[in-house]
Amino acid sequence: MNLAVRIRNLEKHYVLKSETVRALRGVSFDVPAGDYVAIMGPSGSGKSTLLNLLGCLDKPTSGSYFLGDDDVAQMNDDQLSEIRASRLGFVFQSYNLIQQLTVVENIEVPLYYMDRINAKSRQRSIALAKMVGLGERLDHRPTQLSGGQQQRVAIARSLVNDPYFILADEATGNLDSVTTAEILALFQKLNDEGRTIIMVTHEDEVAEHAKRVIRLRDGLIQSDVINTHRKVFPPEVLAKAANPSEPIPALTAG
């Protein structure tokens, strides 16, 4: 099976005032391509640490983290930046859009750092914006959008580089229940289309939409189970979640 992520004995220690905190104490799991994983755990469980490692924002103390064929754990800062730009899609709790850029420009940012901005990539960004239902607001600034709309821009942005997986960090934490449902429906739809999603959350209502739930406790995996009670949105909700009217141009080199 094609693996998006392969993690083996991942450990992360922090040194705080001569005292070593072992935030992760040997975590191993695989994420096959097309999976939809929720990572859960109380605060102090190592959830944030694992998120930072998965997002290639931090380096593990030991262990290996294969993203495709490459062991990310051995990479330096510049290489990690390249991996983030080309293989990861981030969706944050607070949207994290750049204020001075428009919707389309925000979607393009990862491409900018891959040096792959061209006329075609602009078409792709516009198509993605349309897909998440923001076709009418391509030139809007983040401040002119609602929270749900901003998060849609962030999701479009996470897709622009055709990532190995989307890493969602409490993606619905700032949204009301109606908007949360919309975003989760969008995630499900993307997953149905074959996107791999890893989301970190502390809310059971959110986690129950995932196919699989990994629970952390004290830096170790407490449980890693298939979600047998998975909540699935009905097709009519999914149809409204995303707008598939237009094919999305593939990423091209150059």
């Binding site: 997002g55 924002l57 800062d77 510049d78 930046s81 390249e82 991996i83 983030r84 730009a85 080309s86 981030f90 994290n96 859009l97 750049i98 204020q99 940012v109 990862p110 750092y113 891959m114 942005r157 580089n161």
Partner: peptide, 16 residues
């Protein structure tokens, strides 16, 4: 600072 964090997360290198 926040913008810098976003840019780094989205693949911006130090030199960028």
């Amino acid at each position: 600072t926040r913008e810098i964090g976003i840019r780094r997360a989205l693949g911006g290198k130090r030199r960028d």
